[in-house]
């Protein structure tokens, strides 16, 4: 492992992809494939969620199996705001980030006392607790989940149209990726990566290791909350299913497929997994078998993920 440094081709490629994405909704409209705008939005949102986990996992070296809890809490904040009549995204989205971030701060403060496998399991335990709390919270719909009948506004713009929400998700993802990219190269990012590589040394050098990790964990949680709030607006529902441990597993799979610790790992993983699902499901009812075999192949033959196939991490 080494520190993250962006490859030279990264910027131009990102600009081209962004331009293509900006044109995508109109193109799909022309082709009369409006359904796929919603699908693309979903991919963007999961790319955001997976990237937030990649921050925690890839850069912070914390294997969290409870990331779906923050994702789900974000979704619930959006739905609860809707229930309370608050439909202004400029208020809802930061609130979702704040609540999910603070929740992650609390979970992290307890969990980060443990190491390795114990950390994996304690994050899982917190996610399970959150799941059962929402299942039994009848005020918020319990197992039925909490519906959002009309998508929020962003500034003055309504997100009811699929195009609008697509652009909102694209904006959120772009902003987050810029932030992560800056962060990874800044002092904070270097420190957190150094802690991942050698915790004892960093501690000996006098770095407040626990505090660095905690901030990283909470930041990941906040961005996951943002993704959750967007997803709830896309599907019109915040449901406890979003908090299930298999959802955390899926996010983890996305990051690992994409490439742990590569800036684009989460994005690539989300795109690959969701496209596979869309394609395989149409061909084969039991597509999970194919997916499972594929994941095994990734573990055995491409252990660094898909992103690693396209470039090296600079030493």
């Amino acid at each position: 492992m080494a520190f993250y440094r962006p490859a030279r081709w990264q910027k131009p490629v990102a600009v081209v992809v962004l331009a293509a994405l900006l044109a995508l909704p109109s193109l799909l409209e022309i082709l009369d494939q409006g359904y796929y705008i919603g699908f693309a939005t979903r991919v963007l949102i999961f790319a955001l969620a997976a990237s937030s986990l990649n921050l925690v996992l890839g850069f912070g070296g914390m294997v969290s199996l409870g990331h779906a809890a923050f994702f789900g809490v974000g979704a619930y904040v959006a739905a609860i705001c809707h229930q309370a009549g608050i439909n202004e995204g400029l208020l809802v989205l930061p609130l979702a980030m704040a609540v999910a971030g603070l929740f992650a701060l609390a979970v992290g403060a307890v969990s980060l006392r443990t190491r390795g496998v114990y950390f994996i399991m304690i994050t899982l335990a917190f996610a399970q607790m959150t799941y059962y709390l929402f299942v039994s919270a009848s005020l918020w719909g319990g197992d039925d989940g909490l519906p959002i009948y009309e998508r929020m506004r962003l500034g003055g713009i309504s997100l009811v149209g699929d195009d609008a929400l697509f652009f909102a998700a694209l904006g959120a993802l772009t902003a987050s990726m810029l932030l992560f990219s800056r962060l990874a190269q800044a002092r904070f990012g270097r420190t957190i990566q150094a802690i991942r590589e050698n915790e004892t040394r960093m501690e000996a050098l006098g770095y407040p290791v626990f505090r660095y990790r905690l901030v990283c964990f909470a930041l990941g949680g906040a961005v996951a909350g943002l993704a959750g709030a967007l997803l709830a607006n896309l599907t019109g529902l915040a449901s406890p299913n979003l908090l299930q441990w298999t959802q955390s597993g899926t996010l983890l799979v996305m990051v690992i497929i994409g490439g742990v610790g590569y800036l684009w790992g989460g994005v690539v993983g989300a795109v690959v997994l969701l496209l596979l699902e869309e394609v395989l499901l149409a061909w084969f009812d039991h597509w999970h078998i194919a997916l499972g075999l594929l994941l095994l192949a990734v573990v055995l033959f491409a252990p660094k993920g898909v992103a690693a196939l396209f470039g090296k991490r600079h030493d």
Binding site: Y35, D143, L237, L242
Partner: peptide
Amino acid sequence: PDVAKQATDKLLKRDKVDFMTGVVFSN
């Protein structure tokens, strides 16, 4: 509910079905 929502959107917008049916659970 999440998976159901996706499948329904696909049937409505892509396949443009005339009727929908089948859901078991109220949530």
